[in-house]
């Protein structure tokens, strides 16, 4: 519900800015300010932590001596991606060579932890989750995966360089960072035995909380399609993007990401 409200707010701001841009274009005003509306996704390469206090280790999926990637030998696999929608205003400086922008960003980060695939396919597909230990009794639950969905509101700051302009296509390079703050999160545990779903509410308390805040730094290259001072579309590839967070323990450890985004650019 809260996420929907934030998305609505972004869309309303976007709509009002778009209207103003159309009015200004009609009266032929020279523009040095642009508004962008973007949406995209980043796939984040994660390191699956091997020493989780609540997951029983298992036999390595590959012998380490045969692994060209150390993660191949690990018994857990971590996946993470983030999708976003953003609106921001860009001011052009130095004869449209440089663009400086700031805005607001809505991000949803999805993180999944599950068992690594075994090369032979003979091992089970589940992990053993330490649910409870009381006295001399220990209880494990078989777990297919843990999924954590977190939503953030962020503030992107970006610097764009527009080195050349070829007809209606403009290439640009970007250096940016966004500062994100947690709005809501939900953790879901998918148990192998569905009868164990009754323990989910208690079991998720063991899982690490998502980052309260994080910063993402990225470089990107993009194409703006459209005439100068006219509305246009842009396509960007972020590679790489780095996530920094101030928490020692998290469900997975992000390393770097790669992403794409599509956007609409309107002169103000």
């Amino acid at each position: 519900m809260r996420d929907t409200r934030i998305l609505m707010l972004i869309l309303m701001v976007a709509a009002s800015l778009s209207l103003k841009a159309q009015q200004d274009t009609l009266i032929g005003k020279q523009n040095h300010l642009f508004v962008f509306f973007n949406a995209g996704a980043d796939f984040i390469i994660c390191s699956p932590p091997e020493d989780k206090e609540y997951i029983r280790g298992s036999v390595n999926t590959y012998p380490e001596e045969y692994c060209f990637d150390l993660n191949m030998a690990k018994s857990m696999k971590a996946l993470s991606y983030r999708t976003h929608a953003e609106a921001y205003v860009e001011g052009r400086l130095l004869k449209n060579l440089l663009g400086v922008s700031a805005g607001i960003k809505y991000t949803r980060v999805t993180t999944i932890l599950c068992k690594n695939d075994n090369w032979s396919g003979t091992d089970s597909k589940y992990l053993y989750f330490l649910y409870q230990h009381t006295g001399t009794t220990t209880e494990y639950l078989r777990l297919n995966s843990i999924t954590q969905n977190s939503t953030y509101v962020g503030f992107p700051l970006e610097l764009r360089v527009y080195p050349n302009h070829i007809h209606r296509v403009q290439v640009y390079y970007k250096l940016g960072a966004d500062f994100n703050f947690l709005v809501s999160s939900q953790t879901h545990m998918d148990f192998f035995n569905k009868a164990m779903d009754v323990y989910e509410k208690e079991a998720v308390k063991t899982i690490e909380d998502p980052w309260k805040s994080y910063t993402c730094i990225y470089v990107a290259a993009g194409l703006k399609i459209g005439r100068n001072n006219k509305p246009g579309f842009n396509l960007e590839v972020n590679a790489p993007s780095f996530i920094m967070y101030n928490k020692n323990k998290s469900l997975v450890e992000p390393m770097a990401g790669i992403g794409v985004q599509l956007g609409l650019q309107l002169p103000l």
Binding site: Y128, H133, T136, T137, T138, E139, Y140, R142, N193, M196
Partner: peptide, 15 residues
Amino acid sequence: KAQHLFVDNQSMNII
């Protein structure tokens, strides 16, 4: 430590 291990509520072994 000697632990009676249950997996999905079924007695499995003693660790």
